[in-house]
Computed example of a mutant assay.
Amino acid sequence: MKIVDLISWFEEWANPAWCESWDNCGWQVEPGVLQESARVLVCLTPTLAVMEEAIAHHANVIFAHHPLIFTPPKSFRRGEAISEMVRLAFIHNIGIYTAHTNFDQVPDGTADVLAQILELQEVSPIVPAVSGFGYGRVGELEKSLTLQELLAIIQQRLSPPDLIFSPTADLQQQISRVAVLGGSGASFISAVVKTGAQVYLTSDCKFHQFQESRDRNLILVDAGHYATERPACDRLSQKFISLNLDWVQLSQQDEDFREFFNSRV
């Protein structure tokens, strides 16, 4: 399949026109690869390490969730990460394509995959958007679990380096309704409360957002940005594999950008 046909297929599913006004979806760098047979490296965040991986595997597309460029740069200077990415992309003829807030909303996107991992039933968007899609997902657990059991499942299935949750007096509290949103989802707390969810799984939450959630009887669970969005990249790579492209791989150089000190080591 040619790259131009792959992108057309993808954009019928996750139209870049659905992205937010502050976002930057679609081609970040297109050095003239559209008519080439697709060799795709899927990643969460395009970095120099990912670019080196793409070069090593002779990939011609880096398909990323996070944009390489959020705001228009004022200059490109050698030694700066974005400039180096662009330089290497043109030297090695590697396109960089991003699907961000458009990919967040669709079936099998970031939120939908999280809901599937927790096996939520009767799922609907937290905030509906175009064509019945929308941001986040809320649904019912297949059977009620204690909060402690649910936290253990999240830890097991997402493998976050650290799991933070709202203070609660009762880890044996029964949980049946859960909301999820991959990436930075604290701004959706008010919308989640309206859904009747007891637990909200997301990431990048601040001190006072945990306070707000507790005051509104919502248990906030922060599993980290990487752990909540990386599974959707894995799912996307599996979809690409089903298209019988020349070569597809999920990046092995994606980074969490955070390490947690363990004083017991």
Rank of each mutant, 00 (worst) to 15 (best):
K2D: 15
I3L: 15
F10K: 00
E12Q: 14
A14I: 01
A17I: 04
C19L: 00
E20T: 10
S21W: 00
N24D: 03
E30V: 00
V33W: 03
V50Y: 05
E52M: 03
A54T: 02
H65V: 02
H66G: 03
P67W: 04
F70Y: 13
P73R: 01
F76S: 02
R77Q: 09
G79T: 11
S83V: 06
M85I: 15
R87H: 14
T101S: 15
N102V: 12
N102F: 10
D104N: 10
D108K: 14
Q116P: 06
L118W: 12
E119T: 14
Q121P: 07
S124C: 09
V127D: 12
G132Y: 07
R137A: 10
E142P: 14
S144C: 05
L151C: 09
Q155H: 12
P161R: 03
I164E: 04
I164L: 10
S166Y: 10
I175D: 04
S176I: 09
A179W: 04
F188M: 12
K194F: 02
T195P: 08
T195M: 06
V199K: 05
D204L: 05
R216N: 15
L220E: 11
D222Y: 05
E229A: 07
S251I: 05
E259D: 08
F260N: 03
R264D: 09
